[in-house]
């Protein structure tokens, strides 16, 4: 089993406290109407799932996810200022204000984006992995998919395609118990979601307690290695969302059973606390470093908010139309052509 170094553990802690600070700040800014828009799906509670699994990747590997994408973006090293500016729809946002919370991406980090249609990114993941196979590369495509998406056609078609073509995809099912407001056992005939892999002849590495970054990492290293050498593999991360489906989710206030469940997860299976205890058990002197990471996270996010709020909103027709199409000398454009775009 892979054993992460002290430096790795400290860096995971840095990533996790940064994500938590970023997400909780987003939540506050939304409540204060400083972030507008109707969709904001936070990664609070999920941190160890992304941090532990992406630690198994190398820089040339690929990452793609759904709309709960802020944490993934920050783990990959995207600039928190550009990410926060995207939340606010600013010109300086990572997608120029065109995408918002659900559409973060960074070509330079091989981060192919967050996607907003449930399951819509899954065939894209297979296509990205196909490109690697096509060129004889062994880079893997780490693909995050929620429990709800495992019931939709994209999931089944994409897993099957990855199987028959031996595509190097690590399919990580982030099972946080709910597809929007519907419990997994009300939505899926098979509640051990990783077992859906069997239907397509895909290897499953089973369920992982994804509140424990060390457990996540141990399985992810096996999964990545398997995908590199052989083909697709499925892992199910059992995790929990602290801020509901999205910021507009009021179910946790309305349902006592759900709010009790949330308290139980936060008290007993809190991923940052688990990692902190693991680090301090082995490295008693690390306390000051952990405190410094917490302090840094607050500073970085504060600066990100300042940067985002100081940035301008796009407000011209030129910006509205820009990048609808790639520039092309093969396209016949006239003043009177319709649907050619204005660039």
């Amino acid at each position: 089993m892979a054993s992460p170094s002290k430096e790795m553990l400290l860096d995971w802690y840095r990533q996790m406290v940064l994500i938590r600070e970023f997400e909780e700040t987003c939540h506050r800014l939304y409540e204060e109407k400083r972030i507008t828009g109707v969709y904001l799906h936070l990664y609070s509670g999920h941190e160890a799932s992304g941090v532990g699994s992406m630690a198994a990747l190398r820089p040339s590997d690929h990452v793609i996810t759904a709309y709960r994408d802020h944490g993934i973006a920050l783990i990959l090293g995207m600039d928190p200022g550009a990410v926060m500016a995207e939340m606010m729809g600013k010109k300086t946002g990572s997608s120029g204000g065109k995408g918002g919370s659900m559409h973060l991406a960074s070509a330079q980090h091989n981060f192919w984006g967050g996607y907003a249609i449930v399951g819509g990114h899954l065939p894209l993941a297979a296509g990205i992995a196909l490109e690697a196979r096509y060129r004889g590369s062994d880079d893997v495509t780490m693909t995050y998919v929620g429990d709800g998406a495992t019931n939709n056609g994209y999931f089944h078609e994409s897993l099957n395609m990855s199987s028959i073509w031996d595509l190097p995809v690590v399919w990580i099912i982030e099972n946080n118990g709910y597809g929007m407001g519907t419990e997994v056992d009300r939505a899926s005939g098979q509640i051990e979601l990783h077992r859906k892999a069997e239907a397509y002849g895909i290897k499953s590495l089973g369920r992982v307690n994804a509140q424990d970054a060390l457990e996540v990492y141990a399985v992810a290293t096996q999964a990545v290695d398997y995908a590199r050498k052989h083909g697709p593999v499925v892992v199910e991360h059992v995790t929990y969302r602290y801020r509901g489906h999205g910021v507009s989710d009021k179910q946790y206030d309305a349902r006592e059973d759900m709010s009790a469940e949330l308290r139980e997860w936060m008290e007993c299976r809190e991923p940052i606390k688990i990692l902190r205890d693991q680090i301090l058990k082995k490295h008693k002197g690390a306390k000051a470093i952990l405190a410094a990471h917490e302090e840094d996270a607050r500073r970085i996010v504060k600066e990100a908010v300042e940067f985002a709020e100081a940035s301008e909103l796009p407000n011209s027709y030129q910006e509205l139309f820009q990048n609808t199409y790639a520039q092309s000398n093969l396209v016949h454009k006239t003043d009177m052509s319709v649907g050619a775009g204005i660039d």
């Binding site: 204000g97 065109k98 995408g99 991406a105 960074s106 990048n323 609808t324 790639a326």
Partner: peptide, 8 residues
């Protein structure tokens, strides 16, 4: 292409 503002 559009929602990633020309990145891809």
């Amino acid at each position: 292409r559009y929602f990633f503002d020309g990145m891809f």
